[in-house]
């Protein structure tokens, strides 16, 4: 896993976009199919944020976000801490309720439902139905400490999907195998490293087969040497294709490698967005330029 990441100098890219960074050119093909479909207007977005605002008390964290994510699209959200990017994921997972605006998932309102022609706040039943389409992997893993690794993965299929135990275990072991941890099935979370915990958390979310998966800074709590194994697993899942992904991340090279589109959020607004090939090499806004510049300086200093 390469950690070093060179962002091509903004100036040089204008003239010779493909030569500045040898590694980058590999990813230039990644003009997303989804985006071209969107341009044709033929695909219904899997996720649609409409003028989403979120305040915590006096503090307005999101100040009107509009964002469409297409089926199968991998969208990376980058931005300084406190920019509201994690809140975006938490709203989509129904962990926080938007102050105003609407979210649609797969063509249905997430936080609202229609009742006698009026849009009202969703009840638990509606939220429960909508949540079956969405999954999330957290920064701090949030494994269930009182359950073995296998139970962590089988619990939701058995309780929520009413799957038979042996069927759930078969599926869970398949997923654990995918993340390389089938041999830890009888261990408890406390016996695993951070990277292993996060891979279990990914298997646990995958086993529910969500249509949209949110990865919320999944490597931020990991020791640097464990970041690679987790990102590799996510890349593999992304390569499978069909799952829609919202990747909230600080890992620029990861965003560049996996995402079809990169969203840059600052101060609660989407400041700039586009394919990673452009976002990282030809940032237009001053905010993004300085954000990437600071990021590069930090990397260089490490």
């Amino acid at each position: 896993m390469e950690i070093g990441f060179e962002i091509v100098e903004v100036g040089s890219v204008v003239n010779e976009p493909y030569e500045g960074g040898g590694k980058l050119s590999m990813h230039m093909h990644a003009v997303p199919l989804a985006e071209t479909a969107a341009e044709r207007g033929s695909v219904r977005p899997m996720v649609r944020f409409r003028n989403i605002r979120k305040s915590f008390g006096e503090l307005e964290v999101l100040k009107g976000v509009d964002l469409d994510i297409l089926p199968g699209e991998k969208v990376a959200v980058i931005g300084p801490s406190g920019s509201g990017k994690t809140t975006l994921g938490r709203l989509l997972m129904t962990l926080e309720e938007p102050t105003s605006g609407t979210i649609e998932v797969d063509g249905e309102y997430l936080w609202h439902m229609e009742k006698r022609g009026k849009l009202v706040r969703a009840d638990e039943k509606h939220l429960h139905r909508m949540r079956s389409k969405i999954g999330m992997v957290f920064q701090h893993f949030n494994l269930f400490p009182h359950m073995t690794i296998l139970r962590n993965v089988t619990e939701a299929p058995i309780r929520v999907l009413r799957m038979r135990r042996n069927e759930a275990e078969r599926l869970a072991l398949e997923m654990l195998d995918k993340v390389g941890l089938a041999d830890k099935r009888d261990n408890y979370p406390s016996q695993l490293s951070g990277g292993e915990k996060q891979r279990v958390a990914i298997a646990r979310a995958l086993v529910m087969k969500p249509q949209v998966m949110i990865f919320d800074e999944v490597t931020s709590a990991l020791d640097p040497e464990l970041v690679g194994e987790v990102l590799a697993v996510i890349k593999e899942i992304a390569a499978d294709g069909k799952m829609t992904m919202l990747l909230i991340t600080h890992e620029m090279e990861f965003a560049r490698d996996v995402a079809d589109r990169v969203i840059f959020i600052a101060d609660g607004r989407i400041v700039e967005q586009g394919p990673p090939s452009r976002i990282f090499t030809q940032p237009e806004s001053e905010r993004l330029q300085s954000f990437l510049g600071r990021f590069r300086a930090y990397r260089a200093g490490r």
Binding site: T94, L95, R131, I134, M136, R204, M208
Partner: peptide, 9 residues
């Protein structure tokens, strides 16, 4: 929150 994300009621 993890339990909500896994759609436990």
């Amino acid at each position: 929150e993890a339990a909500i994300a896994l759609n436990f009621n």
